[in-house]
């Protein structure tokens, strides 16, 4: 009983395959331990961020304590919102190409988390805006485009949720919608930017009295904390969506067996 047939030569991995295997070996242990790593990293970084934002960072001279919201607001607006929606778009594209319904779960999870962060961004912005601008809301370019993003991805989640977890037709349709919506972002940005602008410009690179290093450090910690929080939430959500898909498949299978 020979282990290998003499007719088939042993496969020699190409250089690309070797690189892929190497990368997989490096990433897989991290991925498999995500339920330990992500909560731990998120917890530590969130603690550090809170301590940094409330205690360590200096009080802003003009705006006062309300400025401390920036440490939550800026990372939520950039990483939490745009990066989640980028993940939605990428997962949707992979789903459209591979037709593997699990990628639909990832896309939905990222969109849910992105919508959550968008609402959080708008809320913190409103709380900050009342004392600083005097109004909770203004039709400024960035506020408006964030609001439009919220509308697009809420519509995405609505359209996806009217169909079952394994409805491939609906999943394909909403994946296309997610791609179109993501590609719409630059157009929205330009149109509302020309429409009107009032938002404070980015402070990190272009203010003359430079931002103190303590503030920048806390902001960096906050960026990391929000990134881990986002990844953890997406991982949790996409796993639960995939469990819902499996339950749905099992139920369909049992129904079929019951009918026969």
């Amino acid at each position: 009983m020979s282990a290998t047939s003499p007719d088939i030569p042993e496969a020699r991995p190409s250089r690309l395959q070797a690189l892929f295997t190497f990368l997989l070996r490096a990433v897989l242990p991290v991925y498999q331990r995500r339920w330990v790593l992500l909560p731990a990293l998120t917890g530590v970084m969130m603690m550090a961020m809170l301590v940094g934002a409330v205690l360590a960072a200096p009080r802003e001279v003009v705006e006062g304590d309300v400025q401390r919201l920036m440490y939550l607001h800026v990372p939520s607006a950039t990483i939490g919102t745009y990066f989640s929606f980028l993940i939605t778009a990428v997962a949707s594209a992979i789903f459209l190409m591979s037709r593997d319904i699990r990628w639909d779960a990832v896309a939905r999870a990222a969109a849910t988390v992105g919508v959550l962060f968008t609402i959080f961004t708008l809320a913190t912005g409103a709380i900050w805006g009342k004392p600083i601008w005097g109004v909770y809301w203004s039709w400024d370019a960035r506020l408006t485009s964030t609001l439009v993003l919220l509308l697009i991805y809420t519509a995405y989640l609505l359209a996806r949720s009217v169909a079952g977890p394994n409805d491939e037709q609906a999943a394909r349709y909403t994946a296309i919608f997610a791609l179109v919506g993501f590609l719409d972002i630059p157009l929205i940005h330009f149109s509302v930017d020309w429409w009107r602008t009032l938002h404070p410009q980015r402070i990190i690179f272009n203010t003359r009295p430079a931002v103190p290093n303590e503030m920048l450090f806390v902001l960096l910690v906050a960026f990391l904390a929000i990134t881990f929080l986002m990844l953890w939430l997406i991982a949790l959500r996409s796993d639960s969506e995939q469990l819902a898909q499996r339950t749905d498949r099992m139920r369909m299978y049992l129904d079929q067996r019951g009918n026969n």
Partner: peptide, 21 residues
């Protein structure tokens, strides 16, 4: 798709935000 009821309700909600620009 063919889910007509969902479509007539959802279609403007889906289309109009994309058309804001």
């Amino acid at each position: 798709g063919t889910r007509a009821r969902a479509r007539s309700m959802l279609f403007p909600v889906l289309a109009l935000p994309l058309l804001i620009p």
